[in-house]
Simulated scan of single mutants.
Amino acid sequence: MAPLEVVGAGFGRTGTDSLRTALNILGYKTHHMKEFKENPDSNDPDRFYDAYKEEDRTKVDWDNIYRDYTAAVDWPTAAFWPDLHKKYPEAKIILTVRDEDSWYKSVKNTIASFQQNRAEQSVGKQVDTDDPNYKLRRMAEAVCLDGLFTDSNRFKDEEKVKQHFLDNIKKVKETIPENQLLVMKLGDGWEELCTFLKKDIPNQPYPNVNSTEQFQKYKTELEKGIQHRQS
């Protein structure tokens, strides 16, 4: 199904799951971090982890990695957008953004707390490197700013973490031609997205999913499933 037609360059917690849902409504098959749990047969975390660690990413087989998708948003894609832009120069780039203070707060209450909690629970335990949960965790921690969210000491430097967020926004805007880039803020709806993608506006509200509360519920269910498989 590759090549990708739409690439999301925005970090997680900027409305990426809502965007995934919207793109799927518009007819795309969209990759997102949740796909590793929802469609494990199409997503091997090791492929993404190896791509992240590859020094020469021109050697990465992106067509194979995203073979079942026509669009991709959220991490791990947010870590690869410069490489994907080079590989698929005709792809539309969507940069989801929000205020850096609210972004840090959202990450702190969701992704960072989840990754730090998992790291604390694994201290002193034997690691099964063949465990799919281990592989997913290793990949997710790496692609999210090279483990920044997992390291509680590094993450406490709020201004430095927020600067990573702002630097990514700046780099995207400086790299992608204006006619190929859509910057979406939280609360933006169908009109600009559909105009950008040349799609008809659906007769339904723009999706609003994966709030902090919803993420925490998802995290609880995920942790219960992991504990059940380990028991």
Rank of each mutant, 00 (worst) to 15 (best):
T16R: 07
T220G: 13
Y69A: 06
V172I: 04
R138A: 13
Y218S: 01
T150G: 11
G27H: 06
D128C: 05
Y104N: 03
Y104F: 11
D128G: 08
P40H: 15
N24Q: 15
P207N: 11
E174L: 00
P202S: 13
E100H: 15
N208Y: 13
Q214N: 14
P76G: 05
C144S: 01
N109T: 12
M1G: 15
Y49A: 04
K171E: 08
A140I: 03
T96F: 12
T14S: 10
E158H: 14
E174W: 05
Y52A: 13
E192H: 06
E174H: 09
P132E: 00
N117T: 03
K217Y: 15
V143H: 04
D50F: 04
V73R: 00
S211L: 04
L148W: 03
R98S: 05
A91W: 04
E38A: 07
V107K: 06
A2N: 14
Q126H: 13
D157T: 09
T195P: 12
F165R: 01
T77H: 00
F48P: 01
A119W: 12
K162F: 12
L84R: 05
K173A: 14
V161F: 10
P205R: 11
L136N: 12
K156I: 09
S211M: 08
E221M: 03
E35A: 09
K37E: 11
N117F: 11
T21N: 08
I201Q: 07
V6K: 03
Y104P: 02
Y134E: 07
K198C: 14
Q126L: 03
Y66H: 08
E221N: 13
D74N: 07
W81A: 02
Q163E: 14
P89S: 14
G8H: 01
S18C: 10
L26D: 11
K219S: 10
K135Q: 02
T175D: 11
R118N: 12
K34V: 13
R98D: 00
T58C: 13
W81T: 01
N179C: 11
N133F: 02
A119S: 15
E223Q: 14
L84N: 07
E54N: 01
N39T: 07
E174C: 09
I111W: 09
N133M: 07
N109R: 05
I176A: 04
G27A: 09
W62M: 03
G225A: 13
V183E: 09
P177L: 00
K162H: 07
W75S: 00
S18Q: 08
D44A: 04
K108N: 15
Q227P: 05
E192R: 01
P82K: 04
P45L: 06
E178V: 05
S102D: 12
G8T: 02
A78D: 11
R47L: 15
L95F: 08
H228M: 14
E5C: 02
